[in-house]
Design a protein around this nucleic acid. Structure first.
Lengths: 194, 194
DNA sequence: TTCCTTTCTTAACCTGCTTCATTTTCCCCG
DNA sequence: CGGGGAAAATGAAGCAGGTTAAGAAAGGAA
């Protein structure tokens, strides 16, 4: 019942039958997390693929100098995990932490492997969404090379307006690959310039 | 016959039966390209997914200032295309061009959609390789943020030693997101420093 | 060989972004 | 309502990496 948004999301790519939905439901665990809680921790193996029913999360990692770098955000109707860790079931490089109280639909690795066999459509579904994720990761590489920080910020802002409202500025700076001070300067320029 | 490397590659993830191989063979076109030839051109729709049987290619795009940015290289046993264009059959942002005479195994978009239905294993196969591609694209985002140019270069060098030998330095600089002059400076530092 | 094009190097100067230190704003809780 | 802690803004000084320009090597074609 609470899983409705998940089925709706999947149906956008490939609709599931009643039986498929109930099989999937039996393998999906709904779990609530508090603000600040970790869904994945660096060093642990990422056991779940997570669909965000509500809330907001960040995926980040800590570099050798102790600096935090935000890899991605996730809000309602997004998937999040440390995919590298999940697919190879090896220790995670990343952390996934809740920025707000959040409700996730979790699918365990072993269950997903079985689901791929029982519901071939799911294989297709995940192929398609990962293709899209890959394309946008590639775009991000490109943008980082060819756009100055100000334009990356503007692009981020109109691509993810929901996110800009919900997370503090210094995290957005981290996501953009700049310091919070420089983002502050950019924002000031934008206000003055207009 | 000439497709042997492709089947061997696929078999690393999920082996195909004889029939599946011959069905796939019937849909794959082997095509030779000369050095300098374009496999995908910006503005055209990318019609093929390409498996490199031999040769070396670059994927790049031209930014608003007319600057070329190399997105990826591809050598033997790699896949290459403008995936964003291919999956949505819309005009390509990228160009794919041969840096050497190359032989590609090409699968047409419509044929691939049919193959997904006829050989469900292929759906699995592509899901898996795209998962990997996504993870490494994400790693590249991360590295660009947290590593200085010198370390990115070192990492590139030991990750893709085959490529470093085959392509000119200024293209490696472009791939790394720096100028050829700066790469030259880095290389000099490395020689001196050792 | 010679000429011409492509690639690589060196060096001087410039700039986007960082760092660090300080101040201001905001907002949560007693 | 007022104080304390986090987040945001400001400003100065420094540096990684970019730009420009000019020349040296290294290939190819003829």
């Amino acid at each position: 019942m609470e899983l409705h948004p998940l089925f709706e999301y999947i149906a956008k790519f490939t609709p599931l039958t009643e039986e498929e939905q109930s099989l999937l439901t039996s393998k999906v665990k709904i779990r609530k997390f508090l603000k600040g809680q970790f869904v994945v921790q660096n060093g642990d193996t990422c056991k779940y693929e997570n669909f965000v029913l509500s809330g907001c999360l960040k995926t980040f990692y800590i570099d050798n100098d102790g600096q935090e770098h935000i890899v991605m955000f996730a809000v309602d109707n997004w998937w999040t995990a440390d995919l590298g860790s999940f697919i190879s079931q090896t220790p995670a490089d990343f952390n996934v932490q809740c920025l707000e109280n959040s409700v996730l639909a979790q699918i365990r690795f072993e269950d997903l492997q079985q689901l791929y066999l029982d519901i071939p459509k799911l294989e297709r579904f995940f192929r398609i969404i990962i293709e899209k994720a890959y394309v946008s990761a590639q775009k991000r590489v490109i943008n980082n090379f060819s756009l100055p920080a100000k334009e990356r910020y503007l692009k981020f802002r109109d691509q993810y307006p929901q996110i800009e409202q919900r997370v503090p500025q210094y995290m957005i700076a981290s996501y953009l690959g700049i310091t919070k001070e420089f983002l502050s300067k950019i924002r000031n320029q934008l206000i003055m310039g207009k």
